[in-house]
């Protein structure tokens, strides 16, 4: 992957190889601390998507395609959305209203607190990361095929 002619220069590739994990880590941090600090599922998800896009920019489209299983990403996206809906429906089953909080609330400022919200944040984060990455991926590949279909 490193020696291929595609993508940007070796410098960019090397730096990306190191920094991309920091970006992923920061995204995960934002998602997990969504109920405590500014940020949350959407913001963290966008950062996760940017990590994937960073790889795509540095290594080129084809190298990334070999490394990533796009169908799997699509499935993760659909599963996270479905699970979010199931959380809402569980609220009806356990509490009588859609999306009601049915987990213990815990003590304020603890990482495991605020009931459902951390779980919902994680689901939103995964969904946003996958959909944003796939949207940019599809749009960036449009010129490759005639008629713009992918």
């Amino acid at each position: 992957m490193n020696n291929s002619k595609q993508g940007m220069t070796l410098i960019v590739k090397t730096v990306t190889r190191v920094t991309v994990w920091l970006i992923v880590l920061y995204g995960i941090y934002l998602i997990l601390h969504g109920h405590l600090t500014p940020g949350g599922g959407f913001g963290g998800g966008v950062i996760l998507a940017l990590a994937f896009l960073n790889i795509m920019l540095a290594y080129g489209r084809e190298a990334t395609q070999k490394w990533l299983n796009l169908k799997f990403l699509e499935d993760i996206e659909a599963v996270s959305a479905t699970l979010f809906l199931f959380m809402g429906l569980l609220g009806i089953a356990l509490g009588g209203r859609f999306l009601i909080n049915f987990l213990p609330k815990g003590s304020p400022h603890a990482l495991l607190s605020a009931g459902n919200i951390p779980i919902l944040n994680i689901l939103i984060g995964v969904k946003v990361a996958m959909s944003l990455f796939l949207v940019v991926w599809v749009l960036a590949g449009l010129h490759e095929e005639k008629g713009g279909q992918s």
Partner: peptide, 13 residues
């Protein structure tokens, strides 16, 4: 809202 949304996601799955 939940029924059509759920079936949309399940269809794609």
């Amino acid at each position: 809202i939940a029924i059509p949304l759920l079936s949309a996601f399940l269809i794609s799955l």
